[in-house]
Amino acid sequence: MTRSDQIKSEIGRLDGSIAALRKELARQQKKADDAAAKARHERDRAHKTKSDSTKRSAMATAERKDKEASTGMKKVGDISVKIAAKEKSVNAKRTSLAAAERSEQRTKDHEDDRRRRKEKSHAQEIARLSHPPARVRFVEVQPPDPEPLRVLYLTANPHATETTVEHPDGTVETNGVWLRVDQEVRKVNQALKKSKFRDLVTVEHLPAATGQDLMDGLNDHRPHVVHFSGHASELGVLLEDDEGSRDGNGMEFALLARVLGATDEPPRLVVLNACESLEGAGDLLRTVPTIIGMSESISDLAAMNFATQFYAAIASAQSVASAVEQAKTQMQMAMLEDFDLPEIRTREGVDGHSLVLVNPSE
């Protein structure tokens, strides 16, 4: 049962209770009115009669009926208070119902978007399988060159994520939050400026990156590291498209591997700072010797902390494995539950502890 269905059921029960109370209110009001009318009648009879016994009997009956009328009116008041309280509760429930229905509609829209992306990725996979697979380059790991480490930093954020909070009074609040990828890049640059060998690392940021931006970046900058921050799934990464549509443009991991290999100088490391991106390691290791990805969905704050500490360690001439461990440790110190999600995968024969991308001796 959805939250809105539950609230509708609660409103139905309250409406039924209010109807029963109104019926009881009418009954008690009638009893009080009848008793008051009877009391007036008996007093009139007592005033008109000349018999003392009849007068005493009539006055006694009048007093008894006055008490019945008073008791009845007290019950009428109590029932009216209960009705008002339940009507107030119904109004609050109706407000909660409207919020829940809006939240469920947004959730449905988000699920529909996700389903469309999966269907699009599935169609692309069918198209890929219908053609003979192209040969993917197998790039060997090379020692660091006597030049600054070049990082191609791609960010894309065509989808907003939503968080839903249910308050104690039953109201539901849903907020759309865009990934703070620009803030992430800013923090990484700040960390690099404070690092020991900051002059040996350069970062080329490509915001709102498309697939064409990636290819142009590989050609223009010949990066040693390709970093992607944004949305991903077990199928691939989500880039922007040239039309700037809300759905973005999904790129499967197998195609991403081909793009990275379609250059004379493929990167030595790919960092996928996005949810479930570790699923692409198998495809990407066919081209790139070392992959860093997230094993599950990671929060925006955790992803930001990971990238900041990772590049601070890389710019201090730490190995890739040590940089990942430093970043995870910093996330744990910050009490982030996602601290264990970043993982490193290497091709057979490649040791992440020996892979140092910044060589200060040169």
Rank of each mutant, 00 (worst) to 15 (best):
P148D: 02
V201M: 08
L154N: 01
K196W: 00
T174L: 06
F138M: 12
D169W: 00
A160H: 08
A191Y: 01
F197H: 14
V185Q: 01
V177C: 06
R180Q: 10
E162S: 13
T210L: 03
S130G: 09
V172Y: 00
A208R: 08
D182A: 09
K118H: 08
T174Y: 01
K193R: 15
V181C: 05
A191R: 04
L152A: 06
G211P: 04
L214Y: 05
M215D: 14
N189Y: 04
P133T: 11
E184F: 00
R198Q: 08
H122F: 12
V201H: 03
A127D: 13
E147Q: 14
Q124H: 09
I126P: 01
K120C: 03
K187P: 08
L218G: 04
V172L: 08
A208K: 13
I126E: 09
A209E: 02
A208D: 15
D220P: 00
H167G: 07
A134C: 07
R117P: 01
N175E: 09
P207V: 00
P207M: 03
S121V: 14
L154G: 01
R114V: 15
V141S: 10
H159V: 15
R180P: 03
L200H: 03
G211E: 08
G211V: 09
T202E: 07
T155R: 03
D199R: 12
S195L: 02
G176N: 13
L129V: 06
K118E: 15
D220R: 13
D169R: 02
F138C: 13
D216G: 00
Q124E: 15
Q124N: 12
R116D: 11
F197P: 11
V151W: 03
R198P: 00
E173H: 11
E140H: 07
V172I: 08
